[in-house]
Design a protein around this nucleic acid. Structure first.
Lengths: 126, 126
DNA sequence: CTTGACCTTCACATCAATGTCAAGGTTTAG
DNA sequence: CTAAACCTTGACATTGATGTGAAGGTCAAG
């Protein structure tokens, strides 16, 4: 499929799809006329990139993970441990981010609830 | 406490602490000599900012969240509805962010699991 | 054949988050 | 008194992720 449809389906701007390609996170095929040609698998990949990127994971790192995913068999013993540690570290960071966001969310939520209650009370009292 | 200690304790660069202050996310006191003076509560605030920021939450938004947390009682009747909508909107954004992070976490997790399995198999086979 | 909606590349602009450096004040230790 | 290690403000540079626009190719519909 062409770039426009991918952009529509993933919510990732046209421009960014080219950018990700430039960063070698993505390698869509080409039609004879030069248009990029994305597969369903590409779309899934874009969604992953979109999410990781929005989570503050740097594209360099995304690339590494995605590359490893491609040839899951090609771990060279030497780098295995290092990469695994990196991933574990990122997961830990994500965990801490999630809990932080959740806390913030809860704070806003309870704030909103209190405020709504406040207004309700005021409304029924006035 | 002075800025250097805050930087050491939070891992947030000196420069960024000033930046956050400039963006009104933080308002440390001042010593007589002009040095910034941070409280323990400031440190906790910095940690929140650090995590939210690392999660890709823009500082503008962080400011709003933090502000709301601060003056939970200060709703003026006129703005109630508007403010409530804003907060609801922000909660929605946090929600989407959280699910995004969770998805990313799962992706990394399963990647790591597969890789580990792979190595285990290879190890016991070789 | 023309028009409009796509697509291409290339380049420049912007914005937020940072690094870095200069010039100078303060405090503490020797 | 001086040197080292802090701190201050201010300015400028960089980097990554984006927007935007120009100049032009492709294709389908009328």
């Amino acid at each position: 499929m062409r770039i426009g449809e991918v952009a529509d389906r993933t919510g990732v701007a046209n421009r960014m799809l080219r950018y990700y390609e430039e960063q070698e996170l993505l390698t869509p095929g080409r039609h004879r006329n030069g248009y990029r040609d994305y597969t369903e698998s590409d779309v899934r990949r874009v969604e992953t990139i979109r999410d990781l990127s929005a989570s503050g994971v740097p594209t360099r790192f995304i690339k590494i993970v995605l590359d490893r995913q491609a040839d899951a068999g090609a771990w060279t013993s030497k780098c295995d441990a290092i990469l695994a540690d990196m991933v574990r570290c990122q997961i830990a960071e994500l965990d801490s981010k999630i809990s932080c966001l959740t806390t913030s969310r809860e704070a806003l939520r309870s704030f909103l609830d209190e405020a709504t209650l406040e207004r309700t009370v005021r409304a029924s009292a006035g």
